[in-house]
Design a protein around this nucleic acid. Structure first.
Length: 220
DNA sequence: TGTGTGATAGTCT
DNA sequence: GACTATCACACAT
């Protein structure tokens, strides 16, 4: 047997144990389950505010409080990727609720969404900003020397800080060891402001952007 | 700069 | 006609 094999096994075990340790570090927060996401997109977007985005990245546990989201629907929602039917990229919006939908915009920025609604009904919620709580050092490794406010106060910044890219597309957030949402059983409902979505030219009348108005960590 | 779309052209049958 | 490949172009949660 090659000398390297036991080493690789040992490293793998160490990494597994370290990840398990990081997963356990959540305290009283419980992972959000499929039924949470299998609802109307706007309700999910609203209820995600105040929950925790948890990411295990490079043996670090990163946490951020969700402070800004946007809801997207299907055929009758022109700005949605699902509006023009299934494509190679957007087909995941029809899949199981609770999966991550990550796509590239402007060829550079990854956008992190979670699939909503019942299976076969397209829908998603874009996570637009989080308040960095844990793992700020690791986030700065990804983002450079950014202030706490600047680390994740926008959809592209957030994915960069949390190391979320196209590899995370299709990840089951109700099941993954590396990426999920968590919330307390009876989370105080947040004070919420609704506005029109950012960067959409159609369906402006729909107020489908949700944010915590007194947070310093939204994209405004 | 990746993705989707529409135009055009080529191949199969 | 059906299907595929290539390309130019517009535009982007």
């Amino acid at each position: 047997m090659p000398v390297g094999v036991p080493w690789i096994g040992w490293l793998y075990f160490k990494e597994y144990a370290r990840t398990s340790e990081l997963i356990e570090a959540g305290g009283k927060m419980e992972r959000l389950t499929r039924s949470f996401f299998a609802r109307d997109s706007a309700r999910v977007a609203e209820d995600l505010l105040g929950t925790l985005l948890v990411r295990i990245w490079n043996s670090h546990r990163l946490e951020g409080k969700v402070v800004e989201t946007e809801a997207y629907y299907g055929e009758k929602d022109p700005p949605s990727h699902a509006a023009s039917g299934k494509t190679e990229r957007s087909r995941i919006m029809w899949s199981r609720p609770g999966l991550a939908y990550v796509y590239l915009i402007y060829g550079i920025h990854s956008m992190f969404n979670v699939v909503t609604e019942k299976s076969d009904l397209p829908g998603a919620v874009l996570i637009r900003a989080v308040e960095p709580l844990k793992g700020l050092k690791a986030m700065r490794k990804n983002r450079g020397r950014a202030s706490r406010r600047e680390l994740a106060s926008g959809p592209g910044k957030l994915t960069e800080a949390f190391g979320i890219g196209k590899e995370e597309n299709g990840v089951d957030l109700t099941d993954s060891r590396y990426l999920w949402f968590a919330g307390e059983k009876d989370l105080e409902p947040e004070r919420i402001r609704t506005t029109e979505r950012i960067g959409v030219s159609e369906a402006r009348e729909k107020k489908l952007r949700f944010l915590i108005p007194d947070s310093d960590f939204t994209s405004e």
